[in-house]
Design a protein around this nucleic acid. Structure first.
Lengths: 181, 181
DNA sequence: GTGAAGTGATTAGGGTGCTAATTATCAGCC
DNA sequence: GGCTGATAATTAGCACCCTAATCACTTCAC
C-alpha cells in the first residue's frame, strides 16, 4: 500500500518549464522531494511485498517488533496505548491491529490485575516462531537494497536525510502528537 | 496517512545489539533503510497536511496534476485506465478517486464517441482555479523543507536515492505492472 | 462516600488502497 | 450473422488509517 505517486517522475526540463508558470517552484527542491517520496515508496514496497506474502502488513509488523523488543528486554507488559504511542498511530487504529493479530493467534490480550481499564498485550509462542522465520529474509532484502551504496555513501545519505527530517519537525511539527497535560 | 513506522528510530547501538541475534542484519543498511522510510514519511506529511486542509489527498492531488498537465499540453483526453497506469494505482482505485472528485465538481466524465466502453476525464474550471490557489503554498512547503540543503547536497542526495531506486526496480521489480501482451 | 474529571479501550463512520468478480462493449473468425 | 476472447469501467468485499463519540474504570475533591 504505497503512497500514490507518479510512476514516472517528470524530467528536470519539465520542472524548469513548470517553473516559468509558478514562480514559487524551485526545480532542484522539487526534484529532491519527488525522488525522496519515490525512493521511500520503493523501499517500502520491497519489504512490504515480503510481508504480504506472509500475511503481514507494515502496521502488523511494527506492532510485532515492538512486542518482540519487549519480550527480549526486561519489561513484559505493553498496553495498547503504549504501542500506539510508539508506532505513531491512534489508539483506535491500534485496537483494530490488535484485533486482527489476536484473531490470527499472534498476540493475546490480558487484563491488568491492578487497573481494570488497562490491558497487557503479549506475543504468543506462535508469533515468536513466525518472526524468526521471516526476519532473515527481511534483513536480506534491506541489505540487497542498500548494496549499491558504500559505507561512506550510507553515512552521507543518513546525514542528508537527517537534515530534511529535522527541518520537517521544526518547520512543520506533527499535529497528531497527543498532549499529556 | 503515513506508513506506520516507529516514531523514534532505534539507536545505532541497538542495531548493533540486534545484529548479534540476527547474523543477516547489517546495521548500516538498516540505518539507511529506517531513515529513508522515516524521512520519506515526514516529507509526505508536510505536503499532505496542506492537502488535507484543502480537502485533498495525495491521490486526488496526483490525479488533478496529471489532468492539469494534459490540459496545459496538447492532448485533452485522459481515460481512467491511463490515469491509473500513470499514477500507479489500480483501475478500481481510480474509479473511486474519480467518483469523489466528480462529486466535488473537480472533474467530469465524458463518454467517448468512438468507443462506448471508454470515458474521458476532464478538469472543471473550478479545479483550475482551485489548483492555482493551492500550488504556491505547496511549492513553498517543498522549498522550505529542502532549504537546509545546498545545491551540491541536493545533487548528491538525488544521486544516492537514485542508486537505491534503481536497485529496487532491478532486484525487486514491481509486480502490479499490468502486462500488455 | 459521592460526584466530577480524567484516562484506557472500544465502537461508529468515513476515506483510500487492494483483489476478484461483473457488466458492457469491441474485434476477429467461422 | 453469431460465437469467442479481449478490454474498459465498475462493483463487492476486505484491510488499515483517521476523527469523534462512547463505555468502563480510576482518582481526586468535597
Amino acid at each position: 500500500m504505497p503512497h500514490l505517486l507518479l510512476k514516472d517522475l517528470p524530467r528536470y526540463e519539465c520542472l524548469l518549464e513548470a517553473a516559468k508558470q509558478f514562480p514559487n517552484l524551485d526545480p532542484s527542491a522539487c526534484e529532491v522531494f519527488l525522488n525522496l517520496l519515490r525512493t521511500g515508496d520503493e523501499a517500502f514496497r520491497v519489504t512490504d511485498e515480503h510481508f504480504q506474502h506472509n500475511g503481514l502488513s507494515q502496521g502488523r509488523f511494527t506492532v510485532l517488533m515492538l512486542l518482540f523488543d519487549k519480550a527480549c528486554g526486561q519489561s513484559h507488559s505493553c498496553t495498547p496505548a503504549a504501542l500506539a504511542e510508539r508506532s505513531g498511530v491512534t489508539r483506535a487504529t491500534m485496537t483494530g491491529l490488535i484485533d486482527t493479530l489476536e484473531r490470527d493467534a499472534m498476540v493475546v490480550r490480558k487484563p491488568d490485575p491492578a487497573d481494570r481499564r488497562m490491558l497487557s498485550v503479549e506475543l504468543t509462542p506462535r508469533a515468536l516462531t513466525f518472526l524468526a522465520s521471516i526476519l532473515p529474509e527481511h534483513f536480506r532484502r534491506i541489505n540487497d537494497l542498500m548494496s549499491p551504496l558504500s559505507e561512506t555513501e550510507r553515512r552521507t545519505l543518513v546525514r542528508l536525510l537527517g537534515k530534511i527530517a529535522v527541518r520537517a519537525s521544526e518547520a512543520f511539527p506533527a499535529t497528531n502528537t497527543l498532549v499529556h497535560a
